[in-house]
Design a protein around this nucleic acid. Structure first.
Length: 633
RNA sequence: GGCCUCGUAGUACAAUGGAUAGUAUAAGAGUUUCCGAAGCUCCAGAUCCAGGUUCGAUUCCUGGCGAGGCCA
């Protein structure tokens, strides 16, 4: 058990025995003692002062004395300062901890028999991966690692959005403009190749829709083939636009709507819809084209996934699962969870839950996203009956995910309560949001190239890698480049929107992956020279700990608790912050106290043991973030 | 229009309702005859505004201002 929890339990016992007050240990506040006071951990007394009806000082003194009398092996001194009871932990606890924590697996919990599925990445097969996908991938990977380290049986899954209008756009553009070229014939990565045709489609669409939108703005009825309803709406919007005194924002909104109508009115969009219809009817040629182009994309994705260290235990393809949800519409109607409107469409009323009515089946009988997701969720549960199911999806889907969980619950799905949406914020650039139209989207492959190049340049500058083979150098640059990138994206609370500053991201100083990696490499150098053996050796350490020695041990002792917390919060940033603190504190310790030339052999062994465990903690912590450590750099 | 999220040093990020709000960067000053200077040490600098709850509020509640998102 962690010392902080132990203190918490002891405090609860003391309160019970001294004052007859029952407070669950979990409700007591134990903090690290502020550096300016004597002590290691602090019990905050205010919360139960009223119940005890004594002064904080008197309570503190009573609990402190109780500790000295009943737990002298743990607490050796105490001091009460204004309602804060500061405990000094016995040095023998710290050295005892150091002697026992010799496993390479320090920090990992034993299996707990529970299953959790983590769904992440979920790409579209019409574009290559970009910076936003990287945050998703790194988060998903790391959360899966956190669950594993906490004892769960984890299945990593990916849902590929491999069908739909957007895929047909790339396909159509390739048919029109591709002249039979292939990724191989133009030496391109398949995902980029297909992505380019998606862009080509958008360009053509813009050309075709430009004159139409002009007509629409001027109220000309040019959208006959979309039906009277749309034409009417367009006319209404055009009239509104002509009406005087609309604020600029409102005007833009209306123009955007007209633009959307115009895009749909183009001949090329008509062709896309035809193609989608053919695909859905199983047209042989269309399916063949679809299979070929998706194949190119997967080849490209594989390279990128391998490079960023992502993989999946099971991949679901939307083309196989998009029809699964329909059967639950019938079931929902029978159970009275859903209701049918006059036009035949099916809805669920969520107003009692603070939401609104939500469509689950269109009047033409086709399903919507939420329906597919219900079917997929059930399908996943059949494959892997998990207690928890984590969806790593951007926060723009918060509403959607809330609805999904609610519906699953109302349908009585056994996994409904285990659904967790790991909702992460968008990645912005210093100039604002990434926009594909403005070409500001940061490509994942380009970014990885850049990170590795910078790693190579900086390494060359410092000149510490004599004797490395070129293969070893390649591995090192990859380790450092990915370390920098992953750390940069994971160090921020996932829930929050974050800014990706290209210049900052390639900085290898301060709160960065390479800083932590450097500390690890340095430790390995010290251990090599000190010929330290951790396991199997019976060390006895001096209990006369210097402040920096104790501080480092105290930090290392917190690692398992950090893993638990990061897992519970689904927040790798807790691990990133902790790993940095461990490295930083070690560097201060290292600068202050010589290890090789320690005052005594006992001290030398103590410091080597601290160094060794620091190395283990850094290695394991970074592993939870998907980051490797180099022995030299 | 309805709903949701976020406002912390110049910048980017921390802080289960707890002590004098931490860390990194950029700016200034030091630091290598000695275990790796991608390091270490010192120096400055911030809770959007107004109320409320509390012994105590960056945190919880209400209103305002600002940024972003979702829904038809």
């Amino acid at each position: 058990m962690q010392i902080a929890d132990h203190i918490r339990n002891l405090s609860a016992q003391a309160l019970q025995q001294l004052f007859g007050i029952e407070i669950p240990a979990g409700q007591l506040t134990i903090n690290e003692t502020k550096p300016e006071f004597a002590g290691d951990y602090t019990l905050v007394l205010f919360s139960f002062v009223k119940q005890v009806r004594q002064s904080p000082d008197a309570i503190g003194k009573a609990i402190g004395d109780w500790m000295l009398a009943n737990a002298s092996d743990t607490v050796t001194a105490f001091e009460t300062v204004k309602g804060f009871l500061n405990f000094t932990i016995s040095p023998s606890y710290w050295t005892g901890f150091l002697q026992n924590a010799t496993s390479e697996n320090y920090g990992y919990a034993a299996p707990n028999g529970q299953k959790v599925m983590v769904e992440y990445s979920s790409p579209n097969t019409n574009k290559p991966l970009h910076l936003g996908h990287l945050r998703n991938n790194f988060l998903g990977w790391s959360v899966a690692e956190l669950y594993k380290a906490s004892g769960y049986d984890v299945m990593k899954t990916c849902v590929v959005n491999d069908r739909g209008v957007h895929i047909c756009k790339s396909m159509l553009a390739w048919e029109k403009f591709g002249n039979g070229s292939t990724p191989a014939s133009v030496s391109m990565k398949g995902d980029h190749f297909v992505g380019d045709y998606y862009v080509k489609f958008e360009n053509e669409l813009r050309l075709q829709s430009a004159p139409i939108i002009q007509d629409l703005v001027h109220g000309k009825p040019v959208v006959d083939h979309l039906g009277a309803e749309v034409a009417e709406k367009a006319a209404l919007l055009a009239a509104k636009l002509k009406g005087e005194d609309l604020p600029a924002e409102k005007q833009d909104e209306i123009k955007a709507e007209l633009n959307e109508i115009a895009r749909n009115a183009t001949p090329i969009m008509g062709e896309v819809r035809d193609m989608l219809r053919k695909w859905e009817l199983g047209d042989v040629e269309t399916k063949a084209l679809w299979r070929m182009m998706n194949g190119w994309v997967y080849e490209g994705f594989d390279i990128t996934y391998k490079r960023i260290g992502s993989n999946f235990d099971k991949i679901y393809y939307e083309s196989n699962t998009y029809l699964l949800g329909k059967q639950y519409v019938e079931e929902g109607l029978e159970k009275g969870v859903f209701f049918r409107k006059e036009d035949g469409s099916v809805w669920i009323d969520l107003t009692a839950d603070g939401l609104d009515e939500k469509l689950v089946l269109r009047k033409d009988g086709t399903s919507v996203y939420i329906t597919q997701d219900i079917g997929l969720a059930k399908h996943k549960y059949a494959d892997f009956p998990m207690e928890q199911s984590v969806y790593v999806i951007g926060d723009e889907q918060n509403y959607h995910m809330k609805v999904l969980q609610l519906i699953c619950r109302k349908l009585g799905m056994p996994f409904a309560e285990g659904i967790h949406h790991l909702s992460y914020g968008m990645v912005d650039l210093p100039t604002g949001r990434m926009k594909s139209r403005e070409g500001t989207v940061v490509d994942a492959d380009d970014l990885c190239d850049e990170m590795e190049k910078v790693a190579a340049d900086k390494t060359a500058e410092l000149g510490k890698v004599e004797g490395f083979t070129s293969e070893e150098l390649t591995v090192l640059y990859h380790t450092l480049g990915m370390g920098a990138l992953k750390f940069y994206l994971l160090r921020v609370d996932p829930k929050k929107r974050m800014v990706f500053n290209p210049e900052e991201s390639i900085d290898f100083h301060g709160f960065t992956g390479p800083f932590v990696q450097y500390t690890y490499a340095r430790i390995q150098s010290v251990l090599r020279k000190g010929s330290f053996v951790a396991e199997g050796a019976a060390h006895t350490f001096s209990t006369d700990l210097l402040p920096l020695e104790k501080e480092q041990i105290r930090l290392l002792e917190q690692f398992p608790a950090m893993v638990q917390q990061a897992c519970a919060d689904m927040s790798p940033s807790i691990i990133a912050n902790y790993a940095f603190l461990v490295a930083k504190t070690f560097n201060s310790f290292y600068a202050e106290h010589s290890i090789a030339k320690a005052e005594s052999e006992e001290k030398r062994m103590l410091r080597l043991a601290i160094s060794n465990l620091t190395g283990v903690v850094i290695k394991n912590a970074l592993k939870l973030l998907g980051i490797d450590v180099p022995d030299r750099m």
